[in-house]
Amino acid sequence: MALLEVRRVDVRFGGLHVLHDVTFACEAGEITGLIGPNGAGKTTTFNVISGVQTPTEGTVILNGEDVSSLKPHLRARRGIARTFQRLEVFGSMTARDNVRVAAEVAQRRRKHGAAKGSVRDVVNLIIERVGLSEVADEQSDALPTGHLRLVELGRALATGPSLLLLDEPSSGLNERESAAFGELLTELADEGLGILLVEHDVPMVMAICERVHVLDQGMVIASGTPAEVQANNAVQEAYLGTKGAAL
């Protein structure tokens, strides 16, 4: 059973048909890429999966459970976490508190009776892992975009998700940071996390993803391993047609 199944999702904004019959799946322990030109509908797909956007039609299935009718917070409690392309950091808090809120909410929900110190440990661990140790106690409003993306990643991880949706997480990072970031994602997947990655940095996607789905004008035009997708004519066309940039 797949970790996440998106089945026949349609989204219309008035007359604008943004997603057509979108169907794909993600597996636990894998990084799945979702790529496509600007305006293809990637963020909208994320919104549908996380419950922020109600689709006109279609279902979202997490671990075999139909979560389509659940509100965002209930989906989060079932293990879906996400970041935002247009950042939604808690700007008035420090980076650490951003992560802490998520960890506290998650801990309380699990009611493991875990010791009080454990939230702090979780937060410290995450801060260190995503590489925010140096700026953790600065108010996040003051941090550059690249760091804010890491704050969002850390915050999402702190909820203890089984599925992580990342919307353009590496924009704003420099080359070295991007590489470290790719490594971190691979590690997380190795630990069993399912990751759905939307990313404009196509070489990075090709390097770290097990499977890739390509969206164009709201339709899945190709799915497969990175090699298969790269060789696909429709994909070449979609990218060449809209952006003039080869894969």
Binding site: P72, H73, I80, S92
Partner: peptide, 24 residues
């Protein structure tokens, strides 16, 4: 308290709060 942080988070972004499992 934890509640205070949740409240601040909600004020900053209801959207992000909900995706952390907070019922706005």
């Amino acid at each position: 308290s934890r509640y205070g942080r949740v409240l601040t988070g909600m004020r900053d972004s209801e959207l992000a709060s909900a995706t952390l499992g907070i019922d706005p």
